[in-house]
């Protein structure tokens, strides 16, 4: 490598840095001293100026006690608070109407209903979906009811759903087998199961089912909750009287089951009982460690009501 200062390359007439290699063949490799393109250079200067302006306006340099705060006083936290304020402001007219109107009134106002359902969907996803599944499909394995059909346990009107969400519900199916503190033998439990299979139109043993029928309406008094026809506390009667729907005894004659309708599952349900629990979400309850505010409850009730089975 040789060093020749500021020569002009005779072929291209460009200034070189003087660095030159491999010239033993007569075709040397030279380092041209081309100036930077102007657009590039000015863009570079602009970014430097931009950086200085940024340091002045925004938080930038770390200091022993924190950092430079910038003239605009901008922080991410302030921006978040502002965004939330703006969103709340935009929701306010809707929220005020939601708060002042009853569930039935909201249900009739289409634009307000759409607003409530969108909000309810998010609230449902955050709080209810863990048990009832995304979209309210439920889970048979754990007895979490599906909310998308029109088969209800405690009722599917707006008022019923509201009651369920506000105050919670507890299943009250007692255990019947002796070893589970019940009053019946395994054979009697099996008879009852056969009877339930018979009224739900599944294959069953007619003799056992006959004995189960007697127990159902007699000693075990299943009909006191499930009704004389086994059609559940919502639809059936006991001794000619309408049943209290707050009992939540399901209809045993249809194909919809909370825990499952196989012989094994029905026997298990009768033997051990079921005490499924829907937590209370209304104010004053702390059963689930969390609460929903009244506005959220309204929205989630309207959402569940809209899922397909609302009455």
């Amino acid at each position: 490598m040789q060093d020749h200062k500021n020569k002009i390359d005779p072929n291209s007439e460009v200034e070189t840095t003087g660095h030159q290699w491999d010239d033993d063949e007569g075709y040397p490799l030279k380092e041209f001293n081309n100036p930077l393109p102007k657009w590039w250079l000015y863009t570079f200067y602009a970014t430097i100026i931009w950086a200085i302006v940024y340091w002045v306006l925004y938080p930038a340099w770390p200091l022993p006690n924190g950092n430079t705060e910038g003239m605009l006083g901008w922080t991410q936290k302030k921006q978040l608070a502002e965004e939330i304020r703006v969103a709340k402001e935009a929701q306010k007219p809707f929220d005020n109407k939601l708060a002042s109107l009853s569930l039935e009134e909201i249900n009739k106002d289409n634009s307000l209903l759409q607003y409530a359902i969108s909000g309810g969907k998010a609230i449902f996803g955050d709080n209810c979906a863990p048990c009832h599944g995304s979209g309210g499909v439920g889970s048979k394995a754990h007895g979490f009811p599906t909310l998308v059909d029109d088969d209800w346990i405690f009722g599917g009107t707006l008022a019923d759903i509201n009651e369920t969400v506000q105050n919670g519900r507890t299943g009250a199916m007692p255990a019947h087998l002796e070893s589970a503190d019940g009053a019946f033998t395994q054979a009697q439990v099996n008879d009852l199961a056969e009877y339930v299979l018979s009224i739900s139109n599944q294959s069953h043993d007619a003799v056992k089912a006959g004995r189960g029928d007697t127990l159902f309406h007699g000693e075990a008094s299943c009909n006191a909750c499930h009704g004389d026809n086994g059609r559940g506390s919502l639809k059936d009667t006991f001794d000619g009287e309408r049943l209290d729907k707050a009992t939540g005894a399901p209809n045993l004659t249809d194909a919809v089951w909370l825990y499952g309708g196989s012989r094994e599952t029905i026997t298990q349900t009768i033997a051990r009982g079921r005490t499924g629990k829907m937590p209370a979400w209304g104010e004053g309850f702390e059963g689930f460690g969390r609460q929903l505010d009244p506005l959220s409850i309204k929205q989630v009730v309207l959402y569940v009501h809209s899922l397909g089975g609302g009455q």
Partner: peptide, 20 residues
């Protein structure tokens, strides 16, 4: 605290049982 331990058990076994 968002989900119960029961939910987590089922979810680890097969997440699609709970979130299709």
């Amino acid at each position: 605290g968002k989900y119960s331990s029961l939910w987590h058990q089922e979810h680890m076994r097969n997440p699609r049982n709970l979130v299709p």
